[in-house]
Design a protein around this nucleic acid. Structure first.
Lengths: 225, 225
DNA sequence: CGACTCATTGACGTAGCTCAAGGTATGTGG
DNA sequence: CCACATACCTTGAGCTACGTCAATGAGTCG
């Protein structure tokens, strides 16, 4: 049974050769680059060969809200043919050096219409993205900041190769912006987890020390039982 | 440019004849019926011929969060082939008498794979659904309850035939559950709008009196300028 | 006309915000 | 390799928006 994800990767890996054989343009990005023009609608769709990008929104009042991360083997943004106002306040930024295959909407449309299993993959990707957003809108919204943090950390840890002793490479700023919390409030929640021996904190990273104790705090939507 | 929507209808109307000609089962639901078994994954996909349904989530702590409404000419839930835990806490309930064409996942898959323009429509529908969820997660989250209410009312009004004097048929309970607010807080925000002559309230409904004044309160993500 | 649902308002508690000040790693240039 | 700058992290104090609890009023329906 599938749990919410904040990190997307490899969900289009089976199509890599197909993408390479289809009309595209190879593009490179450097750390901190934005993957498309600010304020513009999404004109290109990327298949990521290498690197990780972060997708976030800038709110009128200055807050930054991190939505998701996208790594090798995935496609971003999701293919569609509409023009949404909100997309113009969304930013995608390279966290590492990146290499992508860039498709225009029309090029992607060609592939989408001629390759049914790619179309299925696009739809399944959308379903997973909806799931991540639903998790936040219908679930995290009603939780305290402490519980929201526990859920987030557990989901991240569960997606690593060694959940029991996972190292999560996030600054506290990043975690706060993922959870729509103030940095101060986030620090307080981390302090509690540290005092209880559940995590260890470090500059720019965070270690899971006692995954079971963490899981005991999480809500059922987070746990795969 | 497209704004967030809470009500979905007619986005699959061009396919109605196609749906009728494809293998399906006609089903009827009565007011208050749930459109699929509680706690189960979505096994059927409906094309709605008549009626309106409400989609909501039940949180562990008793809160109910209303997500969206689906009316004639649309398909719900979105087609995909995965199994998400969160779907089991989601409920879809008939608000009126309903008639739908029910497809199994396999039946829908057949259509999806053999009709490229249907596949496009599914993807565009997902993009609109993501947009509605993004609006809440990245935007409304940072707004005060008053501003969130203004945005919601404006979006609803803008989707009616006569926005200037729209009548919105929602109880205050429903509005509170759409905005993740307490009923009390919602009443207070409505009281302010009433005192300012922007709306008139009534049992089970609410009238827009001064749409421009309402728009002046809204944030830019809500306004189509 | 009684029973329900829906709406309104007041009193009070608290989670999480902002503001503020200081502490500790990490990196860079001299 | 030291001095300094720049993140990043921690903790305290006070404020406020919003939640809960509670009581009452006002439409609507059998």
């Amino acid at each position: 049974m599938l749990m919410p994800r904040y990190v997307f990767s490899n969900d289009f890996l089976p199509f890599q050769d197909y993408f390479l054989a289809s009309p595209h343009r190879v593009r490179h990005f450097h750390i901190g680059d934005r993957l498309w023009r600010a304020g513009a609608p999404h004109e290109e769709i990327h298949y990521i060969l290498e690197g990780i990008e972060m997708h976030y929104a800038l709110h009128e009042n200055g807050h930054r809200k991190i939505i998701s991360f996208h790594g090798a083997g995935t496609v971003f943004p999701g293919y569609h043919q509409l023009d949404f106002k909100i997309e113009r306040s969304l930013v995608t930024e390279a966290l590492t050096e990146m290499t992508v295959l860039a498709f225009t909407r029309d090029q992607f449309k060609q592939m989408f219409e001629s390759n049914a299993s790619l179309a299925e993959a696009v739809v399944n990707w959308y379903a997973a993205y909806v799931n991540r957003l639903l998790f936040e809108a219908v679930h995290q919204e009603y939780n305290t900041s402490f519980l929201r943090l526990c859920n987030l950390l557990y989901l991240f840890a569960a997606n690593t190769p060694a959940p029991e002793s996972a190292v999560l490479p996030f600054t506290q700023d990043t975690l706060a912006e993922l959870l729509s919390l103030s940095r101060v409030q986030l620090t307080r929640a981390l302090a509690r987890l540290r005092q209880e021996g559940i995590i260890a904190t470090q500059r720019g990273a965070l270690h899971i020390v006692d995954l079971n104790a963490l899981a005991a705090y999480c809500s059922s939507e987070t746990l795969d039982d």
